[in-house]
Amino acid sequence: TFTSIVTTNPDFGGFEFYVEAGQQFDDSAYEEAYGVSVPSAVVEEMNAKAAQLKDGEWLNVSHE
């Protein structure tokens, strides 16, 4: 299960995956970082959410 939350205070020191406002979700980078295949429906969902981000916001993507 993939989830996401919007934050204005990303923790770059941890093992977190963020999408910056104005960027798209990079499923290849996510797969490389976590060894998890990302279904195309999830990629579309995360890109739709990322498109709604305002300046200074980040989308924190995770999975269980």
Rank of each mutant, 00 (worst) to 15 (best):
T1M: 13
T1A: 12
T1D: 07
T1I: 15
T1W: 14
F2E: 00
F2S: 00
F2Y: 08
F2P: 00
F2D: 00
F2Q: 00
F2L: 04
T3Q: 09
T3C: 14
T3G: 06
T3I: 13
T3V: 12
T3R: 10
T3L: 11
T3H: 13
S4E: 02
S4H: 07
S4D: 03
S4Y: 13
S4I: 08
S4R: 01
S4L: 08
S4N: 03
I5G: 07
I5F: 15
I5R: 09
I5L: 12
I5E: 11
I5H: 13
I5A: 10
I5C: 15
I5K: 11
V6W: 02
V6G: 03
V6Y: 03
V6Q: 02
V6P: 03
T7S: 06
T7P: 00
T7I: 09
T7N: 03
T7E: 06
T7Q: 04
T7K: 03
T7C: 09
T8K: 10
T8C: 09
T8W: 08
T8Q: 09
T8P: 05
T8R: 12
N9A: 11
N9Q: 11
N9W: 08
N9S: 12
N9H: 10
N9V: 09
P10W: 02
P10Q: 04
P10R: 06
P10F: 03
P10Y: 02
P10L: 04
P10D: 02
P10K: 05
P10C: 08
P10H: 06
P10N: 03
P10E: 01
D11L: 10
D11A: 09
D11W: 12
D11V: 12
D11C: 14
D11Q: 11
D11T: 11
D11I: 13
D11F: 12
F12A: 06
F12P: 06
F12N: 05
G13I: 07
G13H: 11
G13F: 11
G14V: 07
G14R: 09
G14A: 10
G14L: 08
F15M: 13
F15C: 15
F15S: 14
F15L: 13
F15W: 11
F15P: 11
E16D: 11
E16Q: 14
E16V: 08
E16L: 15
E16A: 14
F17P: 00
F17Y: 08
Y18N: 03
Y18I: 05
Y18R: 05
Y18W: 08
Y18M: 04
Y18G: 01
Y18C: 04
V19F: 03
V19C: 04
V19S: 00
V19P: 01
V19K: 01
V19D: 02
V19G: 01
V19T: 05
E20P: 14
E20A: 15
E20D: 05
E20K: 15
E20G: 15
E20C: 10
A21W: 11
A21I: 04
A21P: 08
A21F: 13
A21L: 05
A21H: 10
A21E: 04
A21M: 07
G22K: 06
G22V: 01
G22N: 06
G22W: 05
G22I: 02
G22S: 04
G22H: 07
G22R: 06
G22M: 06
Q23F: 10
Q23G: 14
Q23V: 05
Q23M: 11
Q23C: 11
Q23H: 13
Q24Y: 12
Q24T: 12
Q24E: 10
Q24R: 13
Q24S: 11
Q24G: 09
Q24A: 11
Q24W: 12
F25S: 01
F25K: 01
F25N: 01
F25M: 07
F25L: 04
F25Q: 01
F25R: 00
F25V: 01
D26H: 05
D26I: 07
D26T: 05
D26C: 07
D26K: 06
D27C: 15
D27L: 14
D27E: 14
D27V: 15
D27A: 15
D27K: 15
D27H: 15
D27I: 15
S28M: 13
S28Q: 14
S28N: 12
S28E: 12
S28P: 04
S28K: 15
S28L: 13
S28H: 14
A29G: 07
A29P: 00
A29L: 11
A29H: 06
A29N: 04
A29D: 05
A29E: 06
A29S: 07
A29K: 12
Y30G: 02
Y30L: 02
Y30W: 07
Y30V: 03
Y30T: 01
E31H: 11
E31N: 09
E31P: 01
E31T: 14
E31S: 13
E31V: 08
E32N: 11
E32V: 11
E32H: 13
E32D: 10
E32C: 13
E32Q: 14
E32T: 11
A33Y: 12
A33D: 04
A33T: 11
A33M: 15
A33K: 15
A33F: 13
Y34T: 09
Y34D: 03
Y34W: 08
Y34V: 03
Y34E: 00
G35R: 07
G35H: 08
G35Y: 04
G35A: 06
G35E: 04
G35M: 06
G35K: 08
V36N: 02
V36I: 13
V36P: 02
V36Q: 05
V36Y: 08
S37N: 09
S37K: 15
S37G: 08
S37E: 09
S37V: 12
S37C: 13
S37Y: 10
S37F: 10
V38S: 02
V38T: 03
V38C: 05
V38H: 00
V38G: 02
V38F: 02
V38M: 05
V38E: 01
P39E: 03
P39A: 04
P39N: 04
P39C: 07
P39Y: 02
S40F: 12
S40I: 12
S40N: 09
S40R: 14
S40A: 14
S40P: 14
A41N: 12
V42E: 03
V42R: 03
V42D: 04
V42T: 06
V42H: 02
V42I: 11
V42C: 06
V43W: 06
V43A: 08
V43Q: 06
V43R: 11
V43N: 04
V43P: 00
V43T: 10
V43I: 13
V43G: 03
E44R: 12
E44V: 11
E44A: 13
E44G: 08
E44H: 10
E44C: 10
E45K: 06
E45A: 10
E45P: 01
E45T: 07
E45W: 11
E45M: 11
E45R: 07
E45Q: 10
E45H: 08
M46R: 00
M46C: 05
M46S: 02
M46H: 00
M46E: 01
M46L: 15
N47Q: 07
N47C: 06
N47R: 09
N47F: 04
N47W: 04
N47K: 07
N47Y: 03
N47S: 07
N47E: 03
N47I: 05
A48L: 13
A48H: 12
A48R: 13
A48V: 10
A48D: 09
A48W: 13
K49A: 09
K49C: 08
K49V: 07
A50Q: 01
A50R: 02
A50N: 01
A50M: 05
A50C: 07
A50E: 02
A51E: 08
A51R: 10
A51F: 06
A51T: 07
A51S: 11
Q52E: 10
Q52T: 10
Q52S: 10
Q52I: 09
L53H: 02
L53M: 06
L53R: 00
L53E: 01
L53P: 01
L53S: 00
L53D: 02
L53Q: 00
K54N: 09
K54R: 12
K54L: 09
K54Q: 10
K54W: 04
D55F: 12
D55L: 13
D55E: 14
G56C: 05
G56R: 05
G56Q: 03
G56P: 02
G56K: 04
G56Y: 05
E57D: 04
E57K: 02
E57I: 00
E57A: 03
E57G: 02
E57P: 00
E57Y: 06
E57S: 04
W58A: 03
W58D: 01
W58G: 02
W58H: 02
W58Y: 10
W58M: 09
L59E: 01
L59M: 06
L59Y: 00
L59H: 01
L59I: 03
L59S: 00
L59R: 00
L59N: 01
L59K: 00
L59F: 01
N60Q: 15
N60G: 14
N60H: 15
N60S: 14
N60T: 11
V61P: 01
V61T: 03
V61H: 02
S62L: 10
S62T: 12
S62H: 13
S62D: 03
H63P: 03
H63I: 06
H63N: 05
H63Y: 13
H63R: 06
E64P: 09
E64L: 13
E64W: 10
E64G: 12
E64D: 12
E64Q: 14
